[in-house]
């Protein structure tokens, strides 16, 4: 196996880690208005991801950095070409990140309501747009001989990509519902379970359609395997939710996300960004890659440190494994909205 193939796999792994992990905290953010009817319920939901969301998001930063290091041409074309969607994602991640930290800082309903909107929008926008982006990556975009993107924003908003966006949106919402059902007790758990039912059925339909389209239009023969795994996992999620097996349901949505990511990267290989104007202009693992010297150094670093990162992140989930309910939520410690006059 070439070093360039190893790096294609590693980048697929980083995106998989990102979607599996941040997928559920996007889901929690999206479902916040639905599972959290009271302030205590909303805090229960937010605190299920409180200790881990930031570590989850680093998978994205490392995926970005690794793409820059291993496939500079891919990094350059992708992020300059998908300029406006990426801008929206960045803005969403910014407001969402500060929302976690700032929401409880002032004890005022209006303050918290505004941050709840930030959490909701900041979760919906990236969950949708990552799907739009990856569908476009797999389908290909207009690239000229210099590998420059020649389309517009509307090139990216084609039916296949929008279906992809809807599929990831639903998939992450389902993943989040499963996570909430697994990590909470009381009303939030009940509502999350109920939502998982409805979202689960919708995900089977929309996700299934997206997978079939991907396979028929862009898939390699072997990608039928991850397509089937993803489909079975989604159906399994619905069944396990019905049987109230929350651990299994969550594990199955995680499996579905892994399988969808494998399908997407598998369909892409050996291209990294196909050109829809002329196949000769496509970026692939060879013409987009860094030198073998850089790739070999990066491989050593990745081989040594990725397992360490996975180990300590797994330990974090173990430390915070306990379910939480409203009884666990301490009284609000935010400062009053108005400065008290003596």
């Amino acid at each position: 196996m070439e070093l360039t193939d190893i790096w294609f796999l590693l980048i697929a792994l980083l995106w998989t880690g990102y979607f599996v992990l941040e997928g559920f905290d996007f889901g929690v953010g999206m479902l916040l208005p639905l599972v959290g009817r009271t302030e205590a319920d909303r805090r229960v939901a937010i605190n299920t991801v409180g200790p881990v969301w930031d570590g989850n998001e680093v998978w994205l930063l490392v995926a970005g950095g690794a793409t820059f290091a291993a496939f500079p041409e891919w990094y350059a074309t992708l992020f300059s070409g998908f300029y406006i969607p990426l801008l929206l994602i960045l803005v969403a991640l910014i407001v969402r990140g500060v929302a976690f930290e700032f929401r409880g800082k002032i004890d005022s309903d209006r303050w918290r309501r505004n941050w709840d909107i930030a959490l909701f929008a900041g979760s919906v926008v990236p969950a949708l747009l990552w799907g739009v982006a990856f569908a476009n990556i797999v389908a290909g975009v207009p690239l000229d001989a210099d590998h420059e993107f020649t389309g517009t924003l509307f090139t990216l908003l084609n039916p296949y990509a929008l279906l992809g966006g809807l599929a990831t949106l639903l998939l992450f919402a389902l993943h989040g519902a499963g996570f909430l059902a697994l990590k909470t007790r009381g009303d939030v758990r009940m509502r999350a379970r109920g939502l998982a039912h409805g979202i689960g059925l919708a995900t089977v339909v929309v996700g299934g359609a997206f997978l079939v389209w991907t396979f028929l239009a862009h898939g390699a023969a072997w990608t039928i395997i991850p397509v089937l795994v993803a489909a079975l996992a989604l159906v399994g999620t619905v069944l396990m939710t019905h049987r109230m097996r929350e651990g299994w349901a969550f594990l199955l949505t995680a499996t579905a996300i892994v399988a969808v990511t494998v399908t997407l990267f598998g369909s892409l290989y050996p291209d990294v960004l196909p050109s829809s104007t002329d196949p000769a202009n496509s970026l692939n693992t060879t013409n987009a890659a860094s030198t073998p010297y850089t790739l070999s150094i990066m491989t050593w670093v990745a081989v040594v440190f990725t397992p360490i990162v996975v180990a300590y992140q797994a330990w974090t989930f173990w430390v915070f494994r306990r379910r939480i309910g409203t009884a666990d939520i301490p009284v609000a410690t935010g400062l009053p909205a108005r400065i008290p006059t003596p």
């Binding site: 990094y75 850089t294 670093v301």
Partner: peptide, 23 residues
């Protein structure tokens, strides 16, 4: 510059950002 500049950026993420955010 990606062949050179990207490597420290990626290593920064893998070694430093994971460490600080998780812990």
């Amino acid at each position: 510059v990606g062949d050179i500049f990207g490597a420290p950026l990626a290593i920064e993420g893998l070694l430093a950002f994971f460490l600080e955010s998780t812990f």
